[in-house]
Design a protein around this nucleic acid. Structure first.
Length: 254
DNA sequence: ATGGCCTCGGTTCGAGGA
């Protein structure tokens, strides 16, 4: 079973790229973030005509998440029931007896902002909810844009980024705390090339200069981590015309 | 020295992203 995640930065703009990527990469499940699409405008027919099952939760202008699956999706839940939130950032469902959670963690803007405080509270709420979910769903994968680079090796220039949003200690502690639930960063189960990132700023020719961060992750519960045979970041779509600033991450579960 | 780009909404600029 292949599970993937991709922050597409507008599904409307990137729909043909999503379809192209799915044609090139026959994954079982693709989690999307930043669809920026209200539910009434979601391109349901496009995916269904290709045989995909879908679940989505969107809003106007910002956020929005979706799951695209080759297999039926059951028990769909929108957002975190323990954390009332106007913003549509989580959707989950069960696919082939795996609980799949698609998450778009708040960006936080800057460490001195209200949005940073919201991000930390949001992550606390996520931790509390995942602790409960893992008890009822031992086979659980949470994929998405975490907006956290877990360690300095996930940052192109740790000195420049030190203490800033996306790499600050409190954010990293929140990420580590998810690990303490026995959720494993699938990417780090394997040897990886140095300076492998999942996001590059649109400015400064950042992609060409590989000035990126690894902020998109797939966390697996222990039974899934034990069966995980690969986790890769696919840089190809970042090279396409009018790309998302993020690129997909794929985990293979045997 | 600063900020550089992209998307959206809604009109041509501000907010938000990361």
């Amino acid at each position: 079973m292949k599970l993937a995640t991709w922050n597409v930065n507008s599904l409307k703009v990137r729909l043909t790229q999503v379809l192209q990527w799915l044609a090139d990469n026959p994954v079982d499940v693709l989690c999307l973030q930043e669809t920026k699409t209200t539910d009434d405008k979601f391109p349901i027919a496009v995916f269904e005509e290709l045989g995909f099952h879908i679940a989505f939760s969107g809003q106007k202008t910002y956020n929005g998440v979706a799951i695209i699956s080759k297999h039926p999706i059951t028990d769909v839940v929108k957002n975190n029931p323990l954390f009332p939130d106007e913003q549509q950032r989580i959707i989950s469902g069960t696919i082939n007896d795996v609980r799949v959670i698609c998450a778009y963690v708040p960006n936080g803007q800057s460490v001195d902002s209200d949005k940073y405080q919201y991000k930390l509270k949001w992550l606390e709420g996520l931790h509390e909810w995942l602790a409960a979910e893992l008890k009822t769903h031992p086979k659980l994968a949470i994929l998405g844009d975490y907006n956290i680079a877990p360690a300095d090796c996930d940052v192109h220039d740790p000195v420049v980024w030190q203490g800033q949003v996306l790499v600050s200690d409190r954010e990293r502690e929140a990420f580590q705390k998810l690990g303490a639930l026995n959720l494993v960063d699938a990417f780090r189960l394997f040897d990886q090339a140095d300076k492998t990132f999942s996001w590059w700023d649109y400015r400064q020719m950042a992609f060409r200069r590989n000035m990126g961060l690894r902020i998109d992750h797939i966390l697996l519960s222990a039974p899934l981590a034990a069966r995980c045979s690969a986790c890769v970041i696919d840089k190809v779509p970042r090279k396409w015309e009018q790309p998302s600033d993020h690129t997909p991450v794929i985990a293979t579960i045997d």
